[in-house]
Amino acid sequence: MKRVDATDKAKNLIQQLKEKHGDLMFYQAGGCCEGTQPQCFRKGEFYLRYKDVCIGTIEDIEFWVDKDLFEYWKHAHFELDVIDAIGAGGFSLEVPLGKTFKVNYRIFTQDEINLLDEVKLNT
C-alpha cells in the first residue's frame, strides 16, 4: 500500500515541471513557514539530512520527509495536491507558475497499516 499519492491536478503540474527542469524530487520538512509544505526541487539540488525518509514516489519522483515529521505522520497517507496561490516559501519550482503544492492527510486504517510499503532512509 502506497504512503503517498497525488491528485490529477498535481500530476499534471509535475509533468510540466519535469518537461522544464528534468529529474525532480520532493521534500517536506516539519519546521515553520515553507518547511510545512512540500517543496519541489531539481533532483540533487536539496541536500537530504541523515535519516530523512522517502515515503514513496509520485510519477517516478521520490517524496522525502524530515525524519521527525515522519515519526509524527507515519500513520497517515499523504495526498499531494496543488492550489492556485503562492505559498510561504519561494524556493519550490512551482512558485513562478503561481502554484503551491500542498498535502492532504488521512489516517490509515489498521488493515492498511499492515499492508504499507517499506520506507527508505537516507543514510
Score class of each variant (00 low, 15 high):
Met1Val: 01
Val4Asp: 15
Val4Thr: 10
Asp8Gln: 12
Asp8Trp: 05
Asn12Arg: 10
Leu13Lys: 13
Ile14Ala: 15
Leu17Met: 10
Glu19Ala: 05
His21Lys: 13
Asp23Tyr: 04
Leu24Ile: 09
Leu24Gln: 04
Ala29Asp: 08
Ala29Glu: 05
Ala29Trp: 01
Ala29Ile: 03
Gly31Asp: 00
Gly31Lys: 02
Gly31Asn: 04
Gly31Pro: 02
Glu34Asn: 10
Glu34Tyr: 07
Gly35Ala: 03
Gly35Tyr: 00
Thr36Pro: 00
Gln37Phe: 00
Gln37Ser: 15
Gln37Val: 09
Lys43Ser: 09
Lys43Tyr: 08
Gly44Phe: 00
Phe46Asn: 05
Phe46Tyr: 12
Tyr47Gln: 02
Tyr47Ala: 05
Tyr47Phe: 11
Leu48Gly: 08
Arg49His: 01
Arg49Ile: 01
Tyr50Ser: 10
Tyr50Gly: 02
Lys51Val: 13
Asp52Glu: 10
Val53Thr: 13
Ile55Met: 06
Ile55Thr: 11
Ile55Ala: 03
Gly56Glu: 12
Gly56Asn: 10
Gly56Phe: 00
Thr57Glu: 14
Thr57Trp: 03
Ile58Gly: 05
Glu59Ala: 14
Asp60Ser: 11
Ile61Cys: 11
Glu62Thr: 05
Asp66Pro: 12
Lys67Tyr: 09
Lys67Asp: 13
Leu69Ser: 03
Phe70Thr: 06
Tyr72Ile: 13
Tyr72Ser: 11
Trp73Arg: 10
Lys74Asp: 14
Asp81Arg: 06
Val82Ser: 13
Ile83Lys: 14
Asp84Gly: 04
Asp84Ala: 10
Ile86Met: 10
Ile86Asn: 10
Gly87His: 12
Ala88Met: 06
Gly89Tyr: 07
Gly89Asp: 13
Ser92His: 15
Ser92Pro: 10
Leu93Phe: 15
Glu94Pro: 14
Pro96Leu: 07
Gly98Lys: 09
Gly98Ile: 03
Gly98Trp: 06
Asn104Leu: 08
Asn104Val: 06
Asn104Lys: 12
Tyr105Cys: 07
Ile107Phe: 01
Phe108Gly: 07
Thr109Ile: 07
Asp111Val: 07
Asp111Trp: 03
Asp111Gln: 03
Glu112Ile: 02
Leu115Arg: 01
Leu116Val: 02
Leu116His: 01
Asp117Pro: 00
Asp117Asn: 05
Asp117Tyr: 04
Val119Glu: 00
Val119Asn: 03
Leu121Asn: 05
Leu121Tyr: 05
Asn122Gly: 10
Asn122Ser: 07
Thr123Tyr: 02
